[in-house]
Design a protein around this nucleic acid. Structure first.
Lengths: 187, 187
DNA sequence: GATAAACGCTACGATAGCGTAGCGCTACGC
DNA sequence: GCGTAGCGCTACGCTATCGTAGCGTTTATC
């Protein structure tokens, strides 16, 4: 007589939760609102997620789609492909804002921080393959410092998204990729 | 018989408000907490700031100290001076987190957004002088794109502060400045 | 030193979110 | 088909915050 919690109800509440967190952010994320939107009873939600933070993280996991690891054969191509794939996240006001809210929330709450460590790691890790591949091809110096590379790619992207997200066009991204390539290889 | 609202009470509540916003962030910022900490009656707080958001912005204005505009005579020196002056903001977990929270809050709330536009502009504007001076000295191309410059300086700084703030040492900052110089001038 | 303005204090009513209890209903599993 | 496990629903009690009213007290100004 073993019955598991229904996937149906779980899907409905997670779907609604994803919408809530996108629209009102981490601070405005409430169980009541998820219940209202999903049509799932609040009590049922608590049966699935005794701690609302778990549901928050689970919903974030749906919203933040991990980017595919590009493998075009060149660092130039991989960079452009990477920027293109993550662009939607940074162009969208909702998603970009959510991105920073998550970071801030994790900084404030150790519990959340731990829950999201895996979530972040699972997304950042594969991206590192871009640089490892480039190094294997000889496009990057063997003694290259990965964290520095990352911040020279993510940095300008984040910065631009904050101040003028509308500049994240095809052409804008291509120009960024070119500039990054120069910065990464000129040494 | 004209009496102004006392500077004393105002100072006390703003001082407390600054502490609150640093410690619990934008989301946790409440009038009650400011009243508790400052010892100023809640009613008095409302007399000074009918809208708590105004007090929030006023307290942010105290927390986010505008960096001085460096003028060392060289782009290299100005960059290093700039990074050094803003480092405390990005090294501190509290302040860095607050920085992102403010951005997110402004994105969610149009009213807050407008209130902080001036606050941000007053800090970003002067910094631009670094690049204008460099261009005047001939260190930067005459047709240089300022926003792109900014994102190549702020970007890596922000990115590093998020992933490994402990790397923002004297040496780390100096290396960043060098790298930025290369990125900005190699064209 | 009188007066009015600003402050302090208490106590509200209202709202919102939390997390749980109780109970009837539905549907899955044997 | 019977029983149990999961769901829906209502209704709690609790807490926190908001914004305000009323009233007494201090203090600056004239």
């Amino acid at each position: 007589m073993v019955r598991t919690l229904s996937h149906e109800a779980r899907e409905k509440m997670l779907e609604a939760a994803a919408g809530v967190v996108r629209e009102v952010g981490v601070a405005g994320f409430t169980v009541d609102e998820v219940a209202r939107r999903s049509g799932v009873a609040k009590t049922t939600i608590y049966r699935h997620f005794p701690d609302p933070k778990q549901m928050l993280v689970a919903s974030l996991d749906r919203v933040l789609v991990p980017p595919p690891v590009p493998d075009t054969g060149s660092l130039s191509g991989d960079l452009l492909a990477y920027l293109t794939s993550v662009r939607p996240l940074f162009v969208s006001d909702q998603l970009r804002t959510l991105f920073f809210e998550i970071y801030a929330a994790a900084m404030r709450d150790p519990e959340l921080r731990e829950m999201q460590r895996a979530l972040i790691a699972g997304r950042a890790g594969p991206t590192m393959a871009i640089y490892e591949n480039a190094r294997a091809r000889g496009e990057l110096a063997p003694d290259i410092d990965y964290p520095t590379l990352v911040e020279n790619v993510q940095g300008p992207l984040i910065s631009r998204s904050m101040s003028r997200p509308s500049a994240l066009t095809d052409a804008g991204i291509a120009a960024m990729a070119d500039r990054m390539l120069v910065a990464l290889t000129s040494r």
